[in-house]
Amino acid sequence: MRKWIAVAALVLLGGCAGPAGDDSAVAVSPYQTLTVPFDSLEDFVTERPIIVTGKVVAADDSAYEVPVDPAGEGNVAGEGAEIYGTVSFTVDSVIKGDVKPGSTLTIVYISGKWNKADKKGGRIAYTHEDMANVQRADAKLKSPAELGDTTFAIFAAPKPPTLPVGADGLYVAGIATVDGAGRLGFTGEPPFVAATTTAVKLADVKAAAG
């Protein structure tokens, strides 16, 4: 009898466990920024060194953990580490930048933090308005299977030195879906002030990139 209970519990709980120890409490919270939009699509495209289209091939919402300096502003002793996630795209086409079709481009973002240094204190999972195309309401990333053949436009730049993840070859990016008619779908506020109310198309981005 006890064996039956143990087996059932292991199967059920094992199915829920994630790489970041999801058996602990998780509080989902938005990570909110107030930004200055670019004056135009052209300004936005000029600022981004790499613009490609592609599809999601891998997603990991807890790829890196970075300890927090307890002496830093706004931190306390016993502060939990910050967690960074990655989304990898296989490049279908290149609009701008030194990237080859078929290569993989991986973007990194802050996905949460441990509530306390002791991980039993639970985890905060951050949602991002501009990532709602690839992120679920519970802050977990959608899997490549869930996204299927969804094509994304990726407006990327190399990871800045101020981003505390040590790994090389990572990027930060704004992303938008590209529908069958070539229209871009940003979530949250678009990163630029649109000249018209008509949806911006991939062809507009190509024209702006020259």
């Binding site: 919270s29 909110q32 920024t33 930004t35 200055v36 939009p37 951050y126 501009d130 704004g174």
Partner: peptide
């Protein structure tokens, strides 16, 4: 504060650090 992922300038931000 570094620029946002899409390159736009960030004026301020808020995040929950403890729950």
């Amino acid at each position: 504060i570094p620029n946002a992922s899409n390159g736009s300038r960030v004026l301020g931000d808020w995040s929950c650090r403890s729950f």
